[in-house]
Nucleic acid binder design. Structure first.
Lengths: 110, 110
DNA sequence: CAACTATATGTCAGAACTGACATGGGGTCA
DNA sequence: TGACCCCATGTCAGTTCTGACATATAGTTG
């Protein structure tokens, strides 16, 4: 939904910690984006910790390398559903997922 | 995916606290179901606390009463995505959602 | 009783997502 | 250099989800 916002968002590529409203996102949109990004980051963390390549993870998930890449990139074409399923497939529990969501994003050092 | 399991699951209608494996779900499937149910329950809680009817919430979400009902019923046709978006639309933050996920399900009193 | 409100459930066309494929770029190694 | 990896990005046909609608059940009120 709302491809305009998505495109804008994507185009900008975050930098600073807070995802919010430097792009005119409403608080709700921002919350959703934040949540998605938290899951994206978490996915990469889990995968690399496991020493898996995107190809290997894709095989395990019966998905494809390109989709894994999109997930980790926070691409708007991936659903929260898929992110969650992927994390679970790597052994994450609902508790782990909850933690990933609240994990504060460290601001980039300058 | 896996409509067989879904159907079985739906047919049974939970009773006890733990969603798990009295139906032969793998640990991963169970984790996912558990998470979905946690969000479903949370949705109803948030809605009723706000004193909203399903119709009112549907209007706000640009969805429909029937879909809200399905969400709250844990219907397999609703995605985690939609659940999350709905919660956020009612003002829930990522933190609130995380909490909903970890909230232990109280076993039904006998 | 009818009328009204709130919720549940089934169906389906159209919208959104997904896996697969193609391709490009950056690294490493011999 | 060529031969591998690993990852990013674009595209698209097939699958899944969604809103809308119809309809049903239950509770309330007059």
């Amino acid at each position: 939904m709302d491809n305009v916002k998505r495109a804008k968002l994507k185009a900008s590529g975050w930098t600073i910690g807070s995802t919010q409203d430097f792009l005119g996102l409403s608080a709700e949109e921002a919350a959703l984006v934040e949540l998605r990004l938290a899951l994206s980051r978490s996915l990469r963390t889990w995968r690399t910790r496991r020493g898996l390549s995107q190809v290997e993870l894709a095989k395990r998930l019966k998905s494809s390398q390109s989709r894994i890449a999109k997930m980790e990139a926070g691409d708007p074409s991936v659903s929260v559903d898929l992110l969650v399923r992927s994390l679970i497939a790597m052994g994450a529990t609902p508790r782990d997922i909850a933690q990933a969501i609240v994990q504060p994003r460290r601001a980039l050092a300058v």
